[in-house]
Amino acid sequence: MLARLDVAERVQLQFDVEQFLYEEAALLDARRYRDWLGLLADDIHYWMPIRRTVTLADIEREFTKQGDMAFFDDDREMLEMRVRKLEAGSAWSEDPPSRSRHFVTNVRITGVEGDEITVDVCFHLYRTRLETEVDSWIGRRTDVLRRHGASFRLARRHLFLDQTLIRSTNMSTIF
C-alpha cells in the first residue's frame, strides 16, 4: 500500500508521523506519563527482547524471541501499572526524578496496511540521576501507529537495544 502513495501523500504522512513521535517524546521528557498513556492503543504491545553477543554463525539467536525472556513484555494494563508506580510518591528509583531526553531519528515508514503505519526509528534515550548517574540507551525500534481521528494511537513498540549487558542500575524509565 505504501508504494501506491504519491509523493505529496508520502511527504504528508512522514510529517504527521514525525510530529506524533516528537510530541510523544516531549510528554515523556516532561514526565507527563498520564498524558502519554492517552496516546496508547488498548491492544498495545510494548516489548524489549534480550540481546546477546553471539557469533555470526549464531546470529539468528542474537535477540530472544517473543514468548521467551525479555526486559519488557507489556500490555496496556502493565504500562498503566508502571505509570501508577511512577506517580506513587514512593518510587524511590525515580524520586528525586531522573532527567531524561528522548531523541527520535532516522524515521522510516516501512509499511502502511489499512489504518496502521509501521515506522522504523533509531532512538537515543539519555538519562541522568542524582549527581553522577548517567545512562545512555541507543537502539532501533519498530512502532506501529494506528490512525485515530486526525492523529494516531501507538499500537506496538518493539525495542532493540544496542547493549547486551545493560550498563545501568535499572530501567525504571519509559522508552
Binding site: D68, M69, T164, L165, I166, S168, T169, N170
Partner: peptide, 9 residues
C-alpha cells in the same frame, strides 16, 4: 527459558 537478563550496579 531462553534469555539471561544481565545488568550492572
Amino acid at each position: 527459558v531462553d534469555g539471561v537478563q544481565k545488568n550492572v550496579i
